[in-house]
């Protein structure tokens, strides 16, 4: 829930990004994410959502404006990232993959063992600790990737269209799971997708972006309380939210074509 008095965890102020090629990717982006809040960036391809995410992760820097995020401080394990591909190390076991963030901190295998196994158990992968990524299904790999992200108890979780490559059924299941894990840990989440239903189901706030240059042109607050059940997906409220986002997206695409 939003606490009006607490300082936001992540804050972007009038951020612009121009690439070396000269393209203006983002123009005047301002957004904030509070601790524990679930925010989604929704927009068509090429609108710069991934660039925003990378800036929050400290992997990219703005051409103008300011970014405040835990990743840009000395707090090493504050930020976690989940990519569209599971991005597991294919030569390492599931255990070793989940252990990685702790290992990079300097924790030995012995020291990390119980934590990793507990994490694997909570996602149902405890039987696959010695398996290799190539032996897992797409959904299982993604679960392992999220487990890895959460192993350091980060303050903020950045997710770049993580379920895009999965079928609808697996995607829905993982949506349910993700919310559960997120609520358990109260970790702030900045989520990128171009799937409207997913945005509505998961988030407290949805920021709709238009492309070229990337701008936030609509904000939708979703007041459905957590935990959200599968019943929410078939409710009228859900449909209305989806419709509002649909309209906003259409407007975003129109603005884009007229701007060209």
């Amino acid at each position: 829930m939003r606490h009006a008095t607490a300082k936001p965890l992540v804050e972007l102020s009038e951020v612009s990004k121009r690439f070396k090629s000269g393209t203006l990717a983002l123009s005047d982006i301002s957004l904030s994410v509070d601790a524990g809040e679930f925010v989604t960036l929704l927009g068509p391809s090429g609108c710069g959502k991934s660039t925003v995410l990378r800036m929050v992760a400290g992997l990219d820097s703005p051409s103008a404006g300011s970014v405040h995020a835990p990743a840009l401080t000395t707090d090493k394990d504050s930020t976690a990232f989940v990519f569209q591909e599971a991005t597991l190390m294919p030569w390492a076991s599931v255990f070793d993959n989940v252990w990685l963030p702790l290992r990079l901190q300097g924790l030995s295998q012995r020291e990390s063992k119980s934590r990793v196994f507990a994490a694997l158990k909570s996602v149902g992968l405890e039987d696959f600790a010695s398996s290799f990524p190539s032996q897992l299904s797409g959904g299982m790999r993604m679960r392992a990737s999220i487990t890895r992200a959460l192993i350091t108890d980060p303050k903020i979780l950045l997710m770049d269209e993580p379920f895009g490559a999965l079928d609808d059924f697996t995607r829905q299941k993982l949506n349910d799971d993700l919310l559960r894990w997120q609520q358990e840990r109260a970790v702030a989440t900045l989520f990128v997708t171009h799937n409207i239903a997913e945005a509505v189901f998961l988030s407290q706030r949805v920021l709709v972006m238009q492309a070229r240059p990337g701008k936030i042109m609509h904000t939708l607050r979703i007041n459905e309380p957590y935990p959200r059940t599968p019943a929410f997906r078939t409710s009228m409220t859900f449909l209305n939210y989806c419709r509002e986002l649909s309209v906003a997206l259409e407007r975003a695409m129109l603005t884009e074509t007229s701007a060209q």
Partner: peptide
């Protein structure tokens, strides 16, 4: 993406090379 991941966790050059 793995390179970005290692950067995110502030891995040392040696860690990056070895792992």
């Amino acid at each position: 993406n793995l390179m970005d991941l290692f950067r995110l966790y502030r891995a040392s050059p040696w860690q990056r090379l070895k792992l």
